[in-house]
């Protein structure tokens, strides 16, 4: 490992211009990642951004670190390989609602359960956008898309409830239009050692411009606690702030299953075992044998 000589700046992390639509929430999300990296002075060349396919998938190309823009739904398996092979690297996963909850749903379950060390950012614009407006697992019921033109048939899967249910060790939700809250959430997620699930409500100005009313705040609440994430400074006083101890799982479920959206840290468990650590330690702690002994037990 080699240290960066100059302090890291946001400019250092810029690459070619992202090919996203004007007003896309993805710009804010990668900006928050960059801001967090600068605040924490992470070493860019010791950071890997891994992504799947979709608008969010391109994120790994727009941050000047190492990056894997993998295949649809499969960012988690690739990141797992990096976590096992290079545990010292800073690892971020970028995945959309279709990528994480539909085609990659099985990987999400096992990534959360294996609790390997990474920050998982779920870009939730509640539809498939890069393929031009189809219903996703998080599309709200009744919303018209090209595959369900009469309005999406089913109630959406609630990502936060799902991840809490499968035993997430760090479960937070934030939104792309609250840069401070988003950056602080990433900070808390990075500080947590394990699979840090960060749900981000993300605007899609092209296919669902009226979905998240980012100009008003009365429709959602913040969760607050000393062990949690501070409510967005700009919005304090404009909406409800609720006290919630993030080690209280039962209460976390209550907030997650509420009709009203909550942003903040739902749950954290710093003691959940980490599969990556277990495997790595097992290898480290096994006395090594010389290659000359490879056939020892096969001799006749």
């Amino acid at each position: 490992m080699s240290a960066q000589t100059e302090p890291l700046t946001v400019k250092d992390l810029n690459t070619e211009s992202p090919r996203w639509c004007a007003g896309c929430g993805d710009f804010s999300i990668i900006m928050a990642v960059k801001r967090f990296m600068v605040d924490a002075q992470l070493t860019a060349h010791e950071t890997v951004n891994v992504s799947g396919i979709g608008c969010s998938g391109r994120a790994s190309f727009y941050i000047d670190t190492y990056g894997v823009h993998s295949i649809h739904g499969r960012a988690i398996p690739v990141a797992m390989g990096l976590a096992l092979a290079r545990p010292e690297l800073n690892l971020f996963i970028h995945s959309g609602d279709g990528d994480a909850m539909s085609i990659g749903g099985c990987h999400l379950i096992h990534g959360v359960n294996k609790n390997f060390n990474c920050v998982f950012i779920m870009y939730d614009n509640e539809l498939y956008a890069l393929t031009k407006s189809q219903t996703s697992p998080t599309t709200r019921k009744g919303h018209k898309t090209n595959t369900q033109p009469a309005g999406s048939y089913l109630d959406p899967i609630h990502a936060v409830s799902l991840v809490l249910g499968i035993g997430g060790s760090f479960v937070a939700s934030t939104a792309d239009w609250m840069p401070d809250h988003l950056t602080n959430t990433l900070k808390a997620a990075f500080a947590h050692k394990g699979f840090s699930f960060v749900h981000v409500s993300q605007r899609c100005p092209h296919f669902d411009p009226n979905n998240f009313d980012h100009k008003t705040s009365s429709w959602f609440s913040f969760l607050e606690d000393d062990k949690g994430i501070a409510p967005d400074k700009r919005l304090v006083g404009k909406t409800e702030v609720v006290k919630h101890d993030p080690t209280n799982k039962e209460e976390a479920f209550k907030f997650a299953s509420s009709e009203r959206p909550y942003f903040g840290l739902f749950y954290v468990d710093p003691n959940k075992p980490r599969y990556d650590q277990i495997l790595i330690n097992q290898t480290k702690e096994t006395p090594s044998q010389p290659i000359a002994d490879l056939f020892k037990t096969f001799k006749i």
Partner: peptide, 28 residues
């Protein structure tokens, strides 16, 4: 493990190769 290696049992076949690729991208 005696030779510095490890075995990962993935959740499915696709994930299994994905994790191998992640490791090799990391140079391992």
């Amino acid at each position: 493990p005696s030779y510095g290696g490890m075995v990962h049992q993935a959740e499915d076949e696709i994930s299994a190769i994905g994790t191998a690729l992640g490791s090799y991208f990391g140079g391992v």
